[in-house]
Design a binder for these strands. Structure first.
Length: 648
RNA sequence: GCUGCUGUAGCUCAGAGGUAGAGCACUCCCUUGGUAAGGGAGAGGUCGAGAGUUCGAUUCUCUCCAGCAGCACCA
């Protein structure tokens, strides 16, 4: 038998017979490791203990102490155990796929009867029975024809389709958990009893399209979470509960920021508090844009269909546009307009007024552009995905060779904005050429290289999103996450070769001839609405002082202090602080509670002593202790804090 | 848009085939209280909209609207 050499993490190598399994390797090292081993990493690949190793390789044996591998195995085995449980309870259910995801797994089923929330309990119970049986997990490699026939006979069409989609040279692994069988890449644990029975929970049922294709069957997906121990599960569930408290929809109500109602789905009624955040943020962005070399413009909301036809939106985006037809007695003729879903075509109209010289480039044009998009009803989400929103939009008209420099400048700009707003880190995704695209490969090469180079120069290694670019050019997406970890694209930076062409934007080059500018679409916040939603969740409502809508409440302890309260409020306002008086006939406990719930950053309590000494008792949100300070001192301190970071 | 769930007072929720309840919030009264809910009284709802079944519907059925979770979408 041929010999192979396996290299261990400590650098030592040992000789084995070819075809040895990691289980035997572990057993050979020590009896206890043989018992504790759950899987291995072989040449960087997560490897089942039962898979043979045929050639020289590096190897690391894993135990339950290796969190990453253990979680993957536990979650993956649970996916199978859940599918088995479901088929044992409802044998007519067809199985599809069940991958591991962050914190758990899901499995998609095809069953005529929908699952109910009560079913989850029954499935969990059955899963624990399976775990308690300690059924062995076994794997075999099959020929495709045999496997296809096997699944056809069992009436599992989805599995047949999956196999047909697997490249012919890849081995088909068939797994058994006891008598129950599934097609699976593996690896898995050795028996069902290795899965902790008290560290998982089925979370929810939802619809999901087969293969993610909305033209195909709607399956039923069951989500579960799982960990290696029950404390970790408890911590996770606890985290979710805490995260729910940070939901911007809940805080929006509690802080009286905004509301939404049936008559205007996907649109926001901003209340005074919320609008203060909005305008404070807008003022800040306007200053940043000015110092960033942008010129600010404003363009029409309602634009005739002709322009949208020229821009291509009428063809490609019509379903998402609010179309407005005027056909009334007072109108001479019927006009078809659309509320703008984007600002870009309008910005090109401004660019196109008069002749532009190469000396004008790069031309950075910005607009707080209000857009309306008819988003699918199921996509709406609080103020983060709406139908009426305002982008901090901007378009940079430049030459091809300026893309990299402009991208670098933009990343720097965005980074400073995010930092000022409390986001020290954010994720960047890079989407390159899709299959359907405009422009030559040569231009794409250059544009992609420019974006990547600028991003890397900024010290950012983007996540790759292959083939996800716009048809008109590659893009960078700047992603922030909400309270429960969902991704939201906020900032964006996209190269566009197409729109300048369609709308015939030109500039006169140094050579005296006409040239086509490149357009960079960019938004830093993305939209005020989404960004404020993220901002609220990121800070759990405890916004940085300068942007907090209600900054200070001055609360009287007894009515004797009322005059002094008014004086303190006046002083604070004069220092540029948003201050209000609370002289209601209520106890200080009550006032403190109410304004704490309302997330007011600073409460100044004043009673007889403070009136006497011209001091205030300062209480910061989230802190129990208070400090008595001189009034003038506090006013100047808070005046500084109320100053936006770019003006300090 | 798709699958499932939900819609009762400003908010959080209970309720039942015979036309509705709690706590908080709100208004008034008492209370002047020292850092997360002092006490009392009062007011407040075509039970999301429309249709059907029924002697009678907010409750059952259907359609629509909106929201929630996920999927799809997010040039």
């Amino acid at each position: 038998m041929a010999q192979i050499s396996l290299t261990f993490p400590d650098g030592n190598a040992r000789e084995y017979d070819a075809g040895i399994t990691p289980a035997a390797v572990a057993e050979g090292i020590s009896k206890s490791l043989g018992k504790k081993a759950i899987s291995a990493t072989v040449n960087g690949e997560h490897w089942d203990l039962a898979w043979p190793i045929e050639a020289n390789a590096s190897i690391a044996i894993h135990t339950m102490a290796d969190e990453d591998q253990a979680n993957e195995l536990v979650r993956h085995d649970l996916a199978h155990i859940m599918a088995r449980a479901v088929q044992e309870i409802w044998p007519d259910t067809k199985v599809t796929i069940g991958p591991v995801i962050k914190d758990g797994w899901y499995y998609d089923f095809d069953r005529v009867e929908p699952f109910t929330p009560e079913d989850l309990g029954a499935i969990e119970k059955k899963m624990r029975e399976i775990i308690n049986k300690r059924d062995p997990v076994r794997t075999e490699v099959w020929d495709r024809d045999v496997a296809i026939k096997y699944y056809e006979e069992r009436g599992e069409p989805y599995k047949v389709e999956l196999i047909e989609g697997i490249p012919g040279d890849e081995p088909l692994r068939m797994y058994w958990h006891g008598e129950w069988q599934d097609l699976c890449r593996g690896p898995h644990l050795q028996h069902t009893g290795q899965v902790p029975g008290d560290a998982f929970k089925l979370m929810s049922i939802a619809g999901a399209y087969w293969r993610g294709d909305s033209d195909r069957a709607m399956l039923q997906r069951i989500y579960g979470v799982a960990f290696t121990g029950k404390e970790k599960l408890r911590a996770h569930l606890n985290m979710l509960e805490e995260a729910a408290k940070r939901d911007h929809r809940k805080l929006g109500r509690e802080m009286d920021l905004f509301h939404m109602q049936e008559e205007a789905p996907g649109q926001i009624f901003w209340h005074p508090n919320g609008w203060t955040i909005y305008t404070e943020l807008q003022d800040y962005m306007r200053r940043k844009q000015r110092s960033g070399g942008y010129v600010e413009v404003n363009t029409p909301q309602l634009v005739n269909r002709k322009l949208w036809e020229e821009s291509g939106h009428w063809d490609k985006y019509q379903e998402n546009m609010f179309i407005v037809e005027v056909d009334e007695d007072h109108a001479r003729e019927k006009a078809v307009n659309a509320l703008k879903p984007m600002n870009c075509p309008c910005h090109v109209q401004i660019f196109n007024q008069g002749l532009k010289s190469y000396r004008d480039l790069p031309l950075r044009m910005a607009e707080f552009g209000s857009c309306a998009r008819y988003e699918p009803s199921g996509a709406l989400h609080g103020i983060m995905r709406v139908r009426g929103f305002t982008q901090d939009d901007g378009h940079i008209f430049c030459r091809e060779d300026q893309i990299e420099e402009e991208t670098a400048v933009y990343i720097d700009y965005l980074t400073s904005v995010y930092k000022d707003l409390g986001f020290e880190s954010f994720r960047v995704k890079f989407s390159d050429r899709p299959e359907q695209r405009a422009g030559s490969d040569d231009i794409w090469d250059k544009a992609e290289a420019a974006l990547l180079a600028a991003t890397r120069a900024a010290g950012i290694e983007p996540e790759m999103n292959p083939g996800e670019g716009a048809f008109y050019g590659p893009k960078l997406e700047f992603v922030l996450t909400d309270a429960i970890g969902r991704d939201w694209q906020c900032g964006t930076h996209q190269v566009d070769f197409v729109l300048p062409e369609r709308l015939d934007a030109t500039y006169i080059g140094a050579d005296g001839g006409k040239h086509r500018p490149v357009m960079l679409h960019r938004a830093c916040l993305g939209s005020f609405e989404r960004f404020i939603g993220i901002l609220i969740e990121e800070h759990a409502g405890k916004l940085p002082f300068w942007i907090a809508p209600r900054q200070v409440v001055v609360a009287s302890i007894t009515s004797e202090a009322d005059d002094y309260v008014a004086e303190v409020v006046a002083d604070l306002k004069a220092a540029g602080v948003r201050a209000e008086a609370d002289m209601r006939n209520e106890k200080i406990n009550y006032k403190v509670r109410e304004h704490s719930v309302g997330k007011v950053p600073v409460i100044l309590a004043v009673g007889g002593r403070e009136v006497e000494e011209r001091t205030v008792s300062v209480r910061r949100l989230g802190q129990k202790q208070t400090s008595v300070q001189n009034l003038d001192e506090v006013v100047s301190e808070l005046g500084v804090e109320a100053t936006p970071p770019d003006l300090r």
